[in-house]
Design a binder for these strands. Structure first.
Lengths: 226, 226
DNA sequence: AGAGACACGTGAAGC
DNA sequence: TGCTTCACGTGTCTC
């Protein structure tokens, strides 16, 4: 899936993959001339290969979904996705607990976002809290650079935008999306101190296929516009 | 890691792994007799191999954590773990949203069409006893009715929309927002099976004050539009 | 130049 | 029996 490589948009991995796939297909297509156990063997291994390929694809797709679901994932590698998911899960759980206890008591507490929680409230987790080579920065120090990440899966499009906040920014972004004929499925956007973190899951509205490059470009333009 | 295989307890995979590791170590240990590029090459590939091994271990460890964190994981294969995590994440998120909206809106248990009036009262919300520990309410079983909730505070506007999903719904909503001259600050929208749950925080762009009634009306129209 | 990340094909094990 | 899942070593890319 090249979770991280997709950033540049070039997709070298993809082309390589397709090339390999095509090569394999061509090679295996016409080897039935020795109609014996060999052919059967070949068929079996071929099926095995494509099965494995499907499995990997499925897994990677889920990784993508996870990435889209968890805010403050800015690194794109699998380990980070899992780690952030874990952290977010704990945070959410703890927040639910807090809110529910607040429901009982009348007072409302100011809730702040993300804290590094050491304590666990789930039963049965006897796990030692080690692991992770010390990668625990909740909000990395991303520079002033804008980040536009576009991922296209099957019929779904994942949009990730990060940039400085400015007036009517969101409006411009959604105008761009509208122009791209994308139908928005889910949105998550927040503006913590002057920054925008935006994550959108969408699908193509109608059969008009659009290149990821175009999407990325349009978004870039939208967030650059004065 | 043999996530699923570990069930039996024997751990055949483990022994096999260790065996292989030992074999490799022994084999590579004494091949420095040809102290040339070959040895260097071997060292490199060996490092590569163990690096990859570590990476896999880390990943699998996180899978385990995830599995321990998410209740209602019954199958143990990786795909299921990811899938259940995704589902649980969505569920949790939605619950948080619900609880928070209850807190913010203050006694808005019975949602009415467009409640007006800037008030951030935080009275003891008398929620009807619904869920709680039992995370078994994936969706608030509201009828087919649309819910549009508009709250105006100082210079901020809180929009809450719930309705059936349809194509280009989001686009229409954001068009309405644009027309209302609202500048979006944060968004959270999700579409769990055919429904839309949308929450927007915005502020007035420019001095043109708009009545909450108009906002509500415009939103209603937007989500009604065919 | 070296470490880290990913996809790939392959052998093994469970159902 | 065949299908699925996994771990593994390897080639390749990026930083």
């Amino acid at each position: 899936m090249a979770l991280g490589r997709r950033r540049g948009c070039a997709g070298h991995r993809e082309s390589q993959k397709l090339l390999k796939k095509a090569l394999a297909g061509g090679a295996w297509a016409n080897n039935g001339d020795d109609g014996t156990a060999r052919a059967q063997e070949s068929t079996n291994t071929k099926n095995h290969v494509i099965s494995e390929r499907r499995r990997r694809e499925k897994l990677n797709e889920m990784f993508l979904i996870l990435k889209s679901l968890v805010p403050s994932i800015h690194k794109v590698d699998k380990a980070s996705i899992l780690a952030e998911t874990i952290a977010y899960l704990r945070e959410l759980e703890q927040k639910v607990e807090e809110l529910e206890s607040n429901k009982a008591a009348g007072t409302t507490v100011v809730r702040k976002r993300h804290e590094v929680g050491g304590k666990k409230v789930l039963a049965g987790s006897k796990r030692k809290a080690s692991e992770l080579g010390g990668e625990d920065t909740p909000l990395p120090k991303d520079g002033p650079s804008n980040i536009v990440n576009v991922t296209v899966t099957d019929k779904e499009v994942l949009l990730e935008v990060q940039c400085r906040w400015k007036e009517l920014l969101m409006t411009q972004v959604f105008d761009a999306i509208k122009s791209l004929r994308l139908d928005v499925l889910s949105v998550r956007a927040s503006t913590p101190d002057g920054l925008l973190a935006l994550k959108i899951r969408a699908q193509f509205a109608g059969p008009g296929a659009v290149e990821p490059g175009m999407i990325s470009e349009a978004l870039q333009k939208a967030i650059r516009r004065r």
